[in-house]
Design a protein around this nucleic acid. Structure first.
Length: 682
DNA sequence: GAGTTTGAAACT
DNA sequence: CAGTTTCAAACTC
């Protein structure tokens, strides 16, 4: 039986600790009850910014909770799901699953409680107690629910008992436990009563809280399943940081929410007013959480769909999400170099190993890229159908391979290299890169990494300036980014996609061993040729419009696009997306670019010079003009529009352009982009 | 769509 | 580490 980290269960965990915990405050703030209860703290979430959640989120799999919960908890004991199509998929209702469900249920009830208006005062008090318990429940999720249900008073009492009652007999302790359970039962009954009264409570809250619970509760179970505690821990700090960053954004919203949710002087909250905004906000928060929405996973999709159904039954559009390979368990995983370019768009790439170097502390924990959606600009029509979801779906779907002999278990395979499972659109043969062969995939990956620890690391490194600079600077972007390992071109003159540098839209560097380099993004010798010969120009045009969309290029009069730079976490298959993006924030490129087109453009030579096109489809000028000064990057997605779409939506009826409109009207914001760490090979 | 070219990945 | 082979994408026709 999985047991929680004992260090977190010490008797010294007193009430103040609970109340200080970020989760507690987060949930508290979401709850109208909390608002009524504790106005004691003005900045409920300031501390969210954050107490180190490490104690709460010990697992590096945070951002894959959903899928991991269903599929990838552990290579050993979690069966890849395959949406029920695969035989061995489901056996795995893991214990973590059960626990999470219990917490979901519990939180759902809590939510209902919070939504109730006419609840009697005593019930309210009970619920307050329960609210207090929630964080602890989340925290100690590995215990049976029974053991966890204690009222706040109980907690206090037990705390003191823990200190003073060391000499108590086993019998006495058992009796204490029995009494505790009685109280818990009583609480549960009361909850049930409230539930009956308040059946109509909004479902969004449930979803939100459940999600939170999912994220939180999965951690300990995950970590306990990992036998390699050492490896596991190495990623903790980063993950924690990632999580905290992620949660920070929601907190911003929540803070606003809290302000909005004013209680009248009498102390009674106007729940009619608060409930709605809370719901909206929470949904917004939820949707803005990269973990929640950007994770590429089937399970995540299911959740999303569930939320949508709650919200808006009309949003039935569900395209197939790409399954992610979750390599948390492996000693060290990173993203394939290819994956970064691809990845970039929606999620920050993070793979455990990518970096082992990161794990070793080379990358500050706070350097996390979080992609968020500007909720204020969220079109009303989006309701529960977040852009992130679409983003994920499309970008993930935008990768496929055509392997014939590698079984998709070598780096030749784009999918595998990117840490993605192959999916239907792939034309591969004898493919083993599927969830049902997860073990094999993982093992192969381990082998590859044993040979080359950076095999899955991002290939392209971009400097911060390339993204955040002025438009003028943007033109120099190719030179500001470099292929980490460099190319070895002999005959292509680095002017074709055979060249990895060119393909990535970056200039060649000294690390390249190419011959006759004419890379239009920057030659090995440091020169530029984009202004010169025709071949270069042509190649540059072609590539600029489709490839290196780090900053590109809404070209095309016919189809003006806003190009996008968004961390392609979406394709980020692995668990540590945020982390990876933190390390290679500028390797983040749009995976959508893969869906972008060659045709899209390029008669215009200016395409070589990436620019922002202000005449964006469906995007108000003022939005497009919102180019962040520094660390906050405003990213506008460029929808896949090309018939050449390298990756197409898995849904037959949903070509890669399916959500073009949606994309055009959304903005993705990179927050907290850290200074770019030097990744130059030693 | 078939065949060729290319350079990365894998192998020796 | 260097040379060779394998591989799949990019490219051409």
């Amino acid at each position: 039986m999985d047991t929680p980290d004992k260090t977190q269960l010490t008797p010294t965990s007193n009430l103040s600790k609970f109340e200080d915990s970020p989760v507690f405050k987060y949930i508290d703030s979401l709850s109208p009850i909390e608002i009524a209860k504790s106005k004691q703290t003005d900045n409920v979430f300031s501390s969210l910014a954050f107490l180190s959640p490490s104690s709460l989120f010990p697992s590096p799999q945070i951002n894959c909770h959903r899928e991991s919960r269903h599929h990838f908890l552990s290579p050993s004991n979690s069966k890849p799901p395959q949406g029920g199509h695969e035989s061995n998929a489901s056996e795995g209702a893991s214990k973590a699953d059960e626990k999470s469900n219990l917490h979901d249920e519990y939180l759902g009830r809590l939510k209902n409680d919070c939504s109730s208006k006419g609840t009697s005062s005593d019930l309210l008090n009970d619920q307050l107690d329960l609210a207090t318990e929630v964080p602890r429940t989340l925290k100690y999720d590995c215990r049976s629910p029974d053991d966890n249900f204690e009222s706040r008073d109980e907690v206090l009492k037990n705390t003191s008992v823990g200190v003073a009652g060391e000499g108590r007999s086993p019998f006495q302790r058992n009796r204490d436990g029995w009494e505790k359970r009685q109280l818990q039962e009583r609480d549960l009954r009361k909850i049930c009563r409230v539930d009956q009264i308040e059946e109509s409570a909004g479902c969004d809250w449930v979803a939100v809280l459940s999600d939170v619970a999912d994220k939180l509760t999965m951690n300990s179970s995950i970590i306990h399943e990992n036998t390699d505690g050492q490896d596991q821990r190495t990623a903790d700090s980063g993950t924690t940081s990632f999580m905290s960053t992620i949660m920070q954004f929601p907190l911003d919203n929540v803070n606003n929410l809290e302000n909005a949710d004013s209680c009248d002087p009498s102390g009674s909250c106007n729940q009619n007013e608060s409930a709605v905004p809370v719901t909206d906000q929470t949904h917004s928060i939820l949707s803005t959480c990269p973990l929640d929405k950007l994770v590429v996973s089937d399970s995540g999709l299911k959740k999303d769909v569930k939320e949508e159904n709650c919200h808006q039954s009309s949003h039935q559009q569900v395209s197939i999400r790409r399954r992610c390979l979750v390599f948390e368990k492996s000693p060290g995983f990173g993203l394939h170099l290819n994956s970064l370019p691809s990845i970039s768009k929606g999620q920050s790439p993070l793979s455990k190993s990518t970096l082992s170097s990161m794990d070793k502390g080379e990358v500050p924990d706070d350097k996390i890229v979080v992609i968020t959606e500007n909720s204020s600009e969220r079109p009303a029509t989006f309701g529960g159908n977040s852009i992130e979801q679409k983003f994920v779906e499309e970008s993930a779907a935008c990768k496929r391979c055509n392997c014939k002999r590698s079984k998709c278990l070598k780096l030749y395979c784009d999918c595998f290299a990117a840490g993605l499972y192959c999916i239907e659109p792939c034309a591969c043969q004898d493919c083993f890169n599927k969830p049902i062969h997860e073990n094999m995939v993982l093992e192969t990956r381990r082998q590859i990494e044993s040979r080359n620890p950076l095999a899955f690391a991002p290939k392209v490194i971009r400097s911060t300036d390339s993204v955040s600079d002025s438009l003028g600077e943007i033109n120099k972007t190719p030179a500001s980014a470099r292929h980490k390992r460099g190319c070895n071109c002999k005959r292509s003159s680095c002017l074709k996609k055979y060249c990895e540098c060119f393909q990535a839209g970056v200039g060649c560097s000294l690390s390249c061993r190419c011959e006759g380099c004419k890379n239009s993004f920057g030659r090995k010798d440091g020169g530029y040729e984009s202004e010169s010969d025709g071949d270069n120009l042509e190649a540059c045009e072609r590539n600029a419009s489709e490839k290196n969309s780090d900053i590109v290029i809404g070209k095309g009069q016919e189809q003006p696009h806003l190009s996008v730079v968004s961390p392609d976490i979406s394709r980020l298959p692995f668990a540590y997306r945020g982390k990876l993006s933190a390390v290679f924030p500028h390797s983040i490129k749009s995976s959508l670019r893969l869906c972008s087109t060659q045709e899209q453009g390029s008669s215009d030579s200016s395409s070589c010079q990436p620019r922002f096109d202000s005449s964006l489809h469906g995007i108000p000028e003022n939005e497009t003009a919102e180019v962040p000064k520094h660390k906050g990057l405003t990213l506008v997605s460029k929808p896949p529009t090309s018939p050449n779409c390298k990756r197409v939506s898995s849904t037959p009826n949903q070509p890669c352009t399916s959500s073009s409109i949606a994309w055009r009207s959304r903005k993705l914001i990179l927050r907290s982009i850290p200074s770019f760490p030097s990744l130059a090979p030693p």
